[in-house]
Amino acid sequence: MLILLIALLLFASACRQKEKERDLPATILAIQQTGKLATAEYTLTKIIRASDDQTWYKIGDRKILMHCEAHLKAGIDLQQVSRNNFEVEGDSLITVTLPHAQLFSIAIPPNKIQVAYQDIGLLRDPFSAAEREQLLAQAEQQIRKLATSLGILQTAETNAVTYIQHLLQQVGYKHVSVIFE
């Protein structure tokens, strides 16, 4: 009788546990608070070309040609700016030292991906959705590697200077000098 009671209690607690797990928000991974001022956006296009003819036992080859658009954003992290980054001389002159620009995001919008051409051998299957995504992920990786060489960081810093100067002039400073760390 006692064993039966313990078993029942354990079962009830297990059921309660299951119910709790079901209530958990399953999708959210993290919420991060930031203070990033994005000042430059580059829109790029890329042709993605691949041939699947390297596997010796597969007869015939497959070729695919896709193109995609990517949006890159860069700017400065305002959370890294503290009192030490400002130097005020008199009433109308201020010097701001900003941290260097960083690449904030790369976005490849789904609607901007297009398959332009496919050539599939008679004995081969067409590229599956999973295979196309893998090729696109490689393209994304190539864009990520190239990003900083495109001059986006320099543009972001130039735009940041213009924006911060305008902002501080609006609040009364006549001469605003912006430099980078």
Partner: peptide
Amino acid sequence: TPVVIKQIQAIAQLVTISAY
């Protein structure tokens, strides 16, 4: 393959929350 820069735009977006 190379990338082609289609557009360069000056923006001013203050991103304060990023949710994953």
